[in-house]
Amino acid sequence: MNLAVAPPETPEKDRGRQIYDLGHTTVFASKQDPRFSYCLYVPPTLGQDDAPELVVAMHGTGRAFMEYRDAFAEFGRWNNCIILCPLFPVGVLGDGNRDGFKYMAEAGIRYDEVLLSIVGEVRERYGLLEDRFALFGFSGGGHFTHRFLMLHPQRLWAAAIGAPGSVTLLDPTRDWWVGIRDVKERFGRTIDIDAMRRVPVQMIVGAADLETWEITHREGGKNWMPGANDAGRTRPERLDSLRRSFEAEGIQVRFDLVPNVPHDGMRVVEHVQNFFAGVLRNRRLNEKN
């Protein structure tokens, strides 16, 4: 396995690295676009063990990116993973839009490319040679995760899609975001179904996540388009439609409907960690064999 080797540091720089770059880190601005930022959990054993894997946890509409970092910290420590939590703020264009990142593009911003640039920064800073990562997102982050998977499956070793309010189905008869007919024109990419089949996928939602006030699209709304509500009324119904859309294309899905859980991302984190841990175990066994 590849080793992550930290460069030599002076005592002063080493102290700063220990405080700000390892463990629960400070918040960094993206070098490519400082409107966006991120924080990390970095195992204190960095450089002493085999190279860590990278896990990205994408926030939802509430932007609780540091809470997700903290929730995954122990997982990162004991599974030798760096945890990366981006922040895509509300109203990047000054218009108060909360939803731009969920649909991957907002005016001239491509949020998938913003994330990839941040991942590149983290790989360079910590000497990571593996360019694939795991991606988890809940609610608005679940929007982002399944659409990122469609556009960049070759960059993921696992994807955990949590309770998105709206879903993009693998439907070639409808335009983005309801379907994928015009993905090539919008994003300059085609959907690689074969690559998607190679990514372990979890879909997870609370069985009590039944409120619809935030997810029902109405004509005239900024994200309205024909078919916007066709995948179902509630989040579990919509996620199940996404599952069926994936499975119709031969993409295997672990579907977790968590009893007695409402719309609360922190209450599904343990299930996501169990999923990622299983995928990691298989990856590492395969690398040894």
Results as ranks from 00 to 15, higher is better:
Ala6Thr: 14
Pro7Ile: 12
Pro8Val: 12
Glu9Thr: 08
Glu9Asn: 13
Thr10Asn: 11
Thr10Arg: 12
Ile19Tyr: 13
Thr25Gln: 05
Val27Cys: 12
Val27Tyr: 02
Val27Gly: 00
Asp33Tyr: 04
Phe36Met: 06
Val42Met: 04
Val42Lys: 01
Pro44Ala: 11
Thr45Asn: 10
Gly47Met: 09
Gly47Thr: 09
Asp50Ala: 13
Val55Ile: 10
His59Thr: 15
His59Ile: 05
Thr61Ser: 13
Thr61Tyr: 15
Gly62His: 06
Arg63Ala: 09
Met66Asn: 10
Met66Arg: 10
Tyr68His: 13
Asp70Gly: 10
Ala71Ser: 15
Ala73Met: 11
Phe75Gly: 00
Phe75Ser: 00
Asn80Tyr: 07
Cys81Phe: 03
Ile82Met: 03
Ile82Trp: 00
Leu84His: 02
Cys85Asp: 05
Phe88Thr: 12
Val90Ser: 11
Val92Lys: 02
Gly96Asp: 13
Asn97Lys: 09
Arg98Asn: 15
Met104Asn: 01
Met104Cys: 12
Gly108Trp: 11
Gly108Gln: 13
Tyr111Cys: 03
Asp112Phe: 03
Asp112Ala: 13
Val114Cys: 08
Val119His: 01
Gly120Trp: 05
Glu121Asn: 04
Arg125Ile: 07
Tyr126Met: 04
Tyr126Leu: 06
Leu128Met: 12
Leu129Cys: 08
Glu130Cys: 07
Glu130Trp: 04
Arg132Gln: 14
Arg132Asn: 07
Phe133Gln: 01
Phe133Ala: 00
Ala134His: 00
Gly137Asp: 03
Gly142His: 02
His143Cys: 02
His143Tyr: 15
Phe144Ala: 00
Arg147Thr: 05
Arg147Asp: 04
Met150His: 09
Pro153His: 04
Pro153Asp: 10
Ala159Pro: 01
Ala160Lys: 03
Pro164Cys: 09
Val167Arg: 00
Leu169His: 04
Asp171Phe: 03
Pro172Ala: 15
Thr173Pro: 00
Val178Tyr: 00
Val178Trp: 00
Asp182Lys: 03
Asp182Ile: 11
Lys184Pro: 04
Glu185Trp: 03
Thr190Met: 10
Thr190Phe: 07
Ile193Cys: 01
Met196Ile: 11
Met196Thr: 05
Arg197Lys: 14
Arg197Glu: 15
Arg198Ile: 08
Val199Ser: 02
Val199Lys: 00
Val201Ala: 02
Met203Gly: 04
Ile204Ser: 06
Val205Trp: 01
Gly206Met: 08
Gly206Ser: 06
Ile215Asn: 06
Thr216Pro: 00
Glu219Ala: 12
Gly221Pro: 02
Lys222Asp: 08
Asn223Glu: 08
Pro226Asn: 07
Ala228Gln: 11
Gly232Pro: 14
Gly232Phe: 12
Arg235Phe: 07
Pro236Cys: 10
Asp240His: 10
Asp240Thr: 11
Arg244Leu: 07
Phe246Val: 10
Glu247Pro: 08
Ala248Ile: 15
Glu249Ala: 11
Glu249Trp: 14
Glu249Pro: 00
Val253Pro: 01
Arg254Cys: 08
Asp256Ile: 10
Val258Arg: 03
Met266Thr: 09
Met266Arg: 07
His271Glu: 14
His271Tyr: 14
Asn274Cys: 07
Phe275Asp: 02
Phe275Val: 06
Phe276Ile: 05
Phe276Asp: 01
Phe276Leu: 15
Leu280Gln: 13
Arg283Gly: 02
Lys288Ser: 09
Lys288Ile: 09
Asn289Leu: 14
